[in-house]
Amino acid sequence: MQDAAIYTKGLTKSYGKLSVLKGVDLVVERGTMLALLGPNGAGKTTIVRILSTLIEPDGGEVKVGGFDVVREGNDVRRTIGLTGQYAAIDDYLTGRQNLEMMGRLYHLSKADSATRAQELLEQFSLTDASERIAKTYSGGMRRRLDLAASLVATPPIIFLDEPTTGLDPRSRLQMWEVIEGLRRAGTTILLTTQYLEEADKLADRIAVIDHGTVIAEGTADELKAKVGKERLEVVVGEAHVERAAQAMGEGAHVDREEGTVSIAAAGVGEVRRALEALENAGVMVESLSLHKPTLDDVFLKLTGHEAEEAAAKN
């Protein structure tokens, strides 16, 4: 386990009396992607900051690329790429200058830095804007430049701290494509996100973080199995909820005030059976919807409180 790309055992960190990490154990095998899923303030960013040597842990063992983050910080820094929550690019340099500077600071040669900058500008659709200062870039362009900047040196391990927060849907899809490409190339990725959908789509494994501890860890399917399946919700009106619930069978949940009935239903088959049962019972369905388990559901199930509450408490 200790030769995993990322390894933490009993990782703790406090700021004064505030204990931010209370013994975090994580293992990310080489070439895989782990998503840290949790609300604001859960400790995700603190973990990333420790793994990328920006701050020191208080206790526990932390290794990145086989190097100890405290004793071998320089080796760690040569091994990683970091994309933080805010696009950390220089507003007053052009896109090209930003990338070339990163290359030089990664200690690539001048020629390699220039070649690499040109490649990345092309691949991230920034060629047209390459000679403009980054201040003039849109939010999506800034994020792309920011991500490109962390890929200049083809590091084997990459940290992405909420890479899609605040992005429009199109930019988010583009970002996902890049991340998937990196994974296919064998990069080890640790990604933090507040979106279950994102963790589900991209990551091999998901660690759910709350109040500085890992409260669940596994593949997306394993986590979803804990949370429950998709739910089918039908609006039938207050007068018909009982009859509808009876027709839909065991496990149906009635909300009398809203006039709705819901039931776990994974896949087209189960949805069709439930709707057919309603039709056979002569219940008029006003509208219907499918709910995927959300981060809120994960939290509600695993911690008994909702994600926003957790965020508010912190």
Partner: peptide, 26 residues
Amino acid sequence: MAYTPKPIGSIQPQKRSALAWALSDS
């Protein structure tokens, strides 16, 4: 946008002394 990652570690840093790097970084 089509990102095709370079093989990991295909670009290697130059080798220089710590002092040379301090000057270069500055």
